[in-house]
């Protein structure tokens, strides 16, 4: 089966050999679990290619973004038994994306970041741990622009708002006696508040909840220890005879974490 380490230097030659590296390529990088060292035998390799102009795709798959042009194109290949998902962005699309998370954008009453699509959010969450597959100049510049921007506080805020809404839902449902719905809402609220906490600590990944526990091990949070996180994530203290108590405890925990976050 496939090697579970990723040879970054092999990516560009492989793309070039297969005709998947446009002449106007500005940057190539890998992201995802393989880069973070969390890969397993069936993990895909996520490759991103930044080009000057929109590349035609040979497969039907496209992604939609709130940018111009409003589509991303993809390729999918298998290299030594491992699937590579290759996503193409134009330089202009990346520039537009970064423009949505500048401090100026953050302070704007128009809230440009509110138009972030799921795919755009994914790119913003991937970029901080991306690994260059070329000389690294392009990625290094973009990562510096992110560090200088409101990227972190905006990503914290997005997860925080999701949690806030679900906490209100859970409280209302509990008050109305709809305990089952309140349990689900409280559980989801907790998921989002953990994402917000992790984002504040620089561990982004709300779109990849499967790695939440891994990320939790990478932050040293006084407000939420791993033990408390895991007990809540797994609903270890849930009493089916008194589900309301779990909802109240979980909302209380969300509130405690929330008060430690700054947006």
């Amino acid at each position: 089966m496939s090697d579970q380490t990723l040879d970054l230097t092999a990516i560009v030659p492989e793309l070039r050999t297969r005709g998947l590296l446009p002449a106007d390529t500005a940057g190539v990088f890998a992201s995802g679990s393989m880069v973070r060292g969390w890969g397993n035998e069936t993990s895909d390799v996520d490759v991103h290619v930044i080009t000057g102009s929109l590349r035609e795709s040979s497969i039907a798959e496209t992604g939609h973004v709130s940018l111009e042009p409003n589509v991303l194109t993809y390729e999918r290949v298998y290299v030594n038994g491992r699937r590579w998902d290759i996503e193409y962005w134009t330089q202009s699309q990346v520039d537009q994306l970064l423009a949505k998370v500048t401090w100026e954008a953050y302070n704007s009453p128009d809230s440009p970041w509110s138009t972030l699509s799921r795919t755009e959010l994914g790119m913003l969450e991937r970029l901080p741990y991306a690994a260059a597959a070329d000389d690294g100049g392009w990625l290094s510049d973009v990562q510096q622009r992110l560090r200088d921007s409101a990227h972190r506080v905006i990503l914290v805020g997005i997860s925080l708002r999701e949690s806030d809404g679900l906490v209100e839902d859970a409280a209302g449902q509990l008050a109305a006696g709809d305990v089952h719905s309140a349990v689900i809402a409280a559980r989801l609220a907790f998921n989002h508040i953990v994402d917000a906490l992790q984002a504040q600590e620089g561990q982004f990944g709300s779109l990849w909840p499967k790695w939440r526990a891994r990320r939790m091990t990478l932050i040293n949070s006084k407000v939420l220890t791993f033990e408390t996180y895991w007990a809540t994530e797994t609903m270890a203290n849930f009493d089916s005879g008194n589900p309301g108590a779990w909802v109240e405890d979980t909302i209380g925990l969300c509130r405690k974490i929330s008060s430690e976050l700054e947006v």
Binding site: D164, V167, E168, A170, A171, G172, L174, A175, E248, I251, G252, R255, S258, S259, E260, L261, E262, V263
Partner: peptide
């Protein structure tokens, strides 16, 4: 007591 739907937020 703080109601369940009330929160403290650090904002700017």
């Amino acid at each position: 007591r703080i109601p369940l739907n009330v929160r403290l937020r650090k904002h700017r």
